[in-house]
């Protein structure tokens, strides 16, 4: 579904992502783990088109269609193609209501019936959002804002959903809930690229994982294999 070869991101003199290669198959949960500043966010921002990058290959294959080159396309066009990003820090629009936030997520679509259907689906998945539908986004708790960010990203009906640190700053029981929901979303047929600092939880649900160190892929493999890998255990799983 997503093929990346030789991805590089530079911010001035800082070389944030070096020759990263990633491959994500349809229906998979793939996770990028690594320390702060390892280049995880830069990688997905580059995939989304928010950060300038160079790449040998950056191609996305929407279901049932031929592969498309992402380079040179603005972020809004990538959303239309079926890529969505739930950004780091949630970025809820605090002055818009919960429902307006959700409608904004469906901005790239014109099928009114389908949007209403997905809105109901989102409310079924996150009942608390339904209770708070007419409240301003800024009045929600951190956990509710994370749910809203997830629901909003789903409103564009993405085939590839990218999540940047969805568990950041959440209480442990909410972290568990978020990871359960990610698996539910995946079972509904969406491919997921998950960036996480909570390596244990991410590796537990991931089919495939990449460990980034100072901007380059250091280790890659199946999620469960990496959980047992001594290098990963030492560096990211607390021994």
């Amino acid at each position: 579904m997503l093929e990346i070869r030789g991805l590089n991101v530079k911010y001035g003199a800082i070389h944030a992502v070096r020759d990263v290669c990633l491959s994500i198959g349809k229906g998979e949960i793939v996770t990028l783990i690594g320390a702060n500043g390892a280049g995880k966010s830069s990688t997905i921002r580059a995939i989304m088109g928010l950060t300038r990058c160079t790449a040998e290959t950056l191609s996305f294959t929407p279901p049932g269609q031929p592969p498309l080159d992402l380079q040179g396309r603005p972020a809004e066009e990538r959303v239309k193609m079926g890529i969505a990003l739930s950004p780091e820090g949630r970025r809820i629009l605090p002055h818009l209501t919960v429902e307006e936030n959700l409608y904004l997520g469906a901005y790239s679509r014109d099928d009114t019936d389908g949007i209403e259907e997905d809105l109901e689906h989102a409310y079924a998945l996150f009942p608390r959002l339904k209770e708070r539908r007419s409240q301003k986004g800024g009045t929600l708790s951190g956990g509710e804002q994370q749910m809203l960010a997830l629901a909003r990203a789903l409103m564009s009906r993405p085939s590839l959903l990218m999540l940047d640190e969805p568990s950041l700053g959440l209480a442990p029981f909410l972290v568990e809930e978020v990871f359960d929901i990610i698996q539910t979303i995946n079972r509904e047929g969406r491919t997921i690229l998950l960036v996480e600092q909570n390596a244990f939880a991410a590796l537990n649900i991931a089919h495939k994982a990449y460990v980034l160190e100072v901007g380059a892929v250091a280790i890659e493999g199946r999620g469960e294999d990496l959980l047992k890998d001594p290098r990963v255990q030492a560096a990211y799983l607390g021994g």
Binding site: L50, P87, L93, Y103
Partner: peptide, 24 residues
Amino acid sequence: TKPGLAMRSISFDIETTRLMGVSV
């Protein structure tokens, strides 16, 4: 209206508005 929603969104956060598929 929909463009109005996008306007109110841009006034707070341009990058997130682009993430929603809005041509800013």
